[in-house]
Design a protein around this nucleic acid. Structure first.
Lengths: 342, 342
DNA sequence: TGGTCACCTGCAACCGGTTGCACGGACGGT
DNA sequence: ACCGTCCGTGCAACCGGTTGCAGGTGACCA
């Protein structure tokens, strides 16, 4: 049975097939696809028509070999299943596609060695990499960044581009919110060691508390998971704080669960603020008051920055920094400091 | 300042650099990396040593051009941010990496046209594609599958490999569970049109209910989201059912929210069973009784099957089918049928 | 001593595009 | 009529590997 429809790429067409069919040299076909302004209008139309009829599609691999650009990007996160990431991944991926790039998503499993290995592996097949909240040391990142365009998200390393979310401001908003509710003693449930975000939160929240003469304790470091929140419960209670800011929604949820098991009610006995504004926080009962992080815009912006860096083949890595705004979403996990308590 | 460490790939080494440094022909270096059994032990050691010293890494793109195999896979899902997918993506990605493959993750945004376009785009740069719960029509999938190895997840198309989750059994378990709780009238909140999973559930639950002489209604189709659950609320109440099985956890959660707004309490007034066992269901209050889906194993298995198909270059697409078991996780959203009600 | 064979390695074509360079013709200016 | 320019196209080298084929060497056997 003969192959029916035109455009059916059952057997791959090459540039030479098109050239022959259109009666031009291969270089003309090549130009028609990658530098069409160099081809006379009339020739261009004919070549494209023939190509379409033959179902020709340029071979990306061959193209990548000569140009040295793969039109692939890497996106490295610590844990795909952490609800903070999917919106970012989704936005990054879909925006990249609009710009004609594909993205490899990779997961470090919260492991620093895996992170480095992943970067090295990916380095050979992508034009650039977005690193979200990397845990590697500054100098390691900087060194790897010498070989390949990087854009960091939620991490600052001198000389590298970054997209930052204004967690400092978010943390300050959280403190302000709790202060207005009358809480005179706050605690921060910190994130994992090496987390830039956690360090930012700590500094900003500490300062905001100090400005108001509010006592401020830090508990941690903790794993950035529900379990991390549960295990921090005892230490949180020991501080005596009545208002708590957690590293992220998951930790906040774990903490609330831990508190629940000890018959400490949220928000009646204790107010808890999360960070990230994930689905998890919206679904939790009580619905979580949280600092909303612009994850989707961050994914989009990071890819935008990366493509820009890649396409302007400046040897010097562009070192643009973008900071995206955060905001506070007040829901049901915070309330006025328990008047009957003290 | 001279470049320090050996192994630093500041300037890319090629196979010819290695050949020259090791005093052998390029083909020998090539064999050392891709068919080492063809090279004398002594020569092999020397070549590898020189390569290591020079920091040589084979260029995947060049390799792909001649071999025709990219060692890249595609993974297409309808919505990365749907909590059903991240565990599957994570497992697929990490397993692929173990096998020496990278994976492109792409998101169709629940749109059929995007789905097809995505497959066509990806087709040119991957060795095979995993399609999770595709919404395309059978014949379209079959046709596209002629050009490229496919593995389907939660979808059956004659002649294509698939990894299925036993939702039929899961749905039956849910019915059984509700029946044992004394519910005599059940409703299914169906998923989106074209969903294989939804069709399976409907059939299996309907049969299980019939077997027990239980009345069974279907509401839908609905969007597979929280919002879909909310909008289905009125219709669910209209059926008069006291036990409900929702298409997935998100729909279940939305439904519970919708019921809550109408002062119908779960599980006191109505029992709800979700499907998927996502984080969302675990975090929801009441904690969701749900059918656990083996998402991570499915991701791993699909990739395994796909790689197997790809590496045994059988022209005929292997047509293996694997069905993974599901189970019921009983939590707090189901209870005995309200005795005071009727 | 000659022949067979297995094992290594080199040679060169090839994968499917891209791109610097050269060439021919059309056009405009003097 | 002559020259300089610009435009469009062809030519061929090249990107970095892979692989079929051939030749050389040494071992083993008769």
């Amino acid at each position: 049975m003969p192959q029916g429809g035109q455009g059916d790429t059952t057997v791959a067409m090459t540039i030479r097939d098109v050239a022959q069919a259109a009666g031009v040299h291969v270089s003309t076909v090549s130009r028609a696809f990658s530098a069409s302004h160099l081809v006379k209008r009339e020739t261009l139309d004919r070549v494209l028509a023939v190509a379409a009829e033959l179902g020709y599609q340029p071979n990306e691999t061959a193209r990548a070999l000569t140009t040295g650009r793969t039109r692939n990007l890497g996106l490295i996160v610590s844990d795909i299943a952490n609800p903070f990431y999917p919106p970012l991944i989704k936005a990054a991926q879909s925006y990249a596609r609009v710009r004609g790039y594909q993205v490899f998503v990779a997961d470090t499993d919260e492991d620093v060695r895996t992170e480095e290995e992943l970067i090295r592996t990916l380095a050979r097949q992508v034009d650039g990499v977005v690193l979200v909240s990397p845990r590697l040391a500054n100098d390691v990142i900087a060194r790897l960044g010498g070989d390949l365009p990087f854009v960091l998200v939620n991490r600052q390393v001198p000389g590298l581009s970054a997209v930052l979310m204004d967690v400092a401001h978010g943390a300050a908003l959280a403190v302000e919110h709790l202060a207005e509710l009358g809480h005179g003693h706050l605690a921060l449930v910190a994130g994992p060691r090496g987390s830039w975000t956690s360090a930012q939160m700590r500094r900003a929240a500490g300062r905001a508390a100090a400005d108001r003469g509010i006592r401020f304790d830090v508990v941690g470091p903790n794993a950035p998971t529900e379990h991390g929140g549960i295990t921090a419960t005892a230490a949180v209670l020991r501080t005596g704080a009545t208002g708590v800011i957690a590293y992220n929604d998951l930790v906040a949820i774990g903490l609330i669960e831990g508190l629940h098991d000890r018959d400490v009610r949220v928000p009646r006995d204790l107010s808890v603020v999360g960070v990230d504004d994930t689905v998890a926080g919206r679904l939790n009962r009580p619905r979580l008051t949280t600092v909303a992080m612009p994850t989707a815009p961050a994914g989009r912006t990071a890819v935008d920055l990366l493509i820009q860096t890649v396409e302007t083949a400046d040897t010097r890595p562009s070192t643009a920094q973008t900071t995206l705004a955060t905001s506070l979403v007040v829901r049901d996990s915070t309330a006025t400091a328990d008047p009957s308590a003290r």
